[in-house]
Amino acid sequence: MKPNIHPASAPLEWVKSSYSGNNGNCVEVAVLPGGGRALHDSKNPSGPVLTFSADEFSAFMASARAGEFDQT
């Protein structure tokens, strides 16, 4: 899975996890038309945006829940 990288463009409704603190080091997610998702760094809201199709994002979340990205 390789995400698309785009500059920020159309206004999106960005949401950060309730687990995030107030230190500004957050990844925020927005729902795209068609059900995909966009991710960006809250410290750089006008910076690049990673976009995923609905299927790609679902696979990413399943992998994260399964611990595939855990660092040991």
Rank of each mutant, 00 (worst) to 15 (best):
E68G: 08
L32V: 02
L12C: 05
G47I: 04
G34I: 05
N23H: 12
L32A: 02
N25I: 04
K2W: 09
D41C: 10
L39T: 03
N22H: 10
S58Q: 07
F52R: 00
S17Y: 07
N44S: 11
S58K: 06
T72K: 13
N4A: 12
S17V: 07
W14H: 06
M61K: 11
L50I: 03
C26Y: 05
T72C: 13
N25V: 07
M1K: 09
P33A: 12
V49A: 01
P45R: 09
V15Q: 15
P48N: 10
K43I: 05
P33Y: 03
M1R: 11
N23G: 11
G35I: 02
P3M: 08
S42R: 11
P11H: 08
F69M: 03
P48F: 03
V49T: 07
A66T: 01
N44R: 12
L50A: 11
E68H: 15
R65C: 09
K43G: 06
S18L: 07
G34S: 06
M61S: 13
S17A: 09
V27I: 13
S63P: 03
A66K: 04
P48A: 12
A59P: 04
S17P: 06
L12H: 05
N22R: 12
P33N: 10
L50H: 03
H40F: 01
S46C: 07
V29G: 04
A30P: 00
L50Y: 04
A54I: 01
F57L: 03
S58Y: 00
S42F: 06
F60A: 00
G34N: 06
S42M: 09
G35T: 02
P45T: 07
N4L: 10
N44C: 09
A30H: 01
A62H: 10
F69K: 02
G67I: 09
M1V: 12
V15K: 15
S42P: 08
D55G: 14
D55W: 03
E56R: 00
T72E: 13
T51C: 05
I5Y: 11
R37V: 10
K43D: 07
F57T: 00
F57P: 00
A66V: 01
E13N: 13
S9E: 14
R37H: 15
A64H: 10
G21R: 08
N23Y: 10
G21P: 04
R37M: 12
G35Q: 02
H40T: 09
G36Y: 01
P7T: 05
A66I: 01
G24S: 08
F52K: 00
F69N: 02
E68A: 13
F57E: 00
S20V: 01
G67F: 08
P3Y: 09
G34Q: 06
W14D: 05
S63C: 13
N4M: 08
P48I: 02
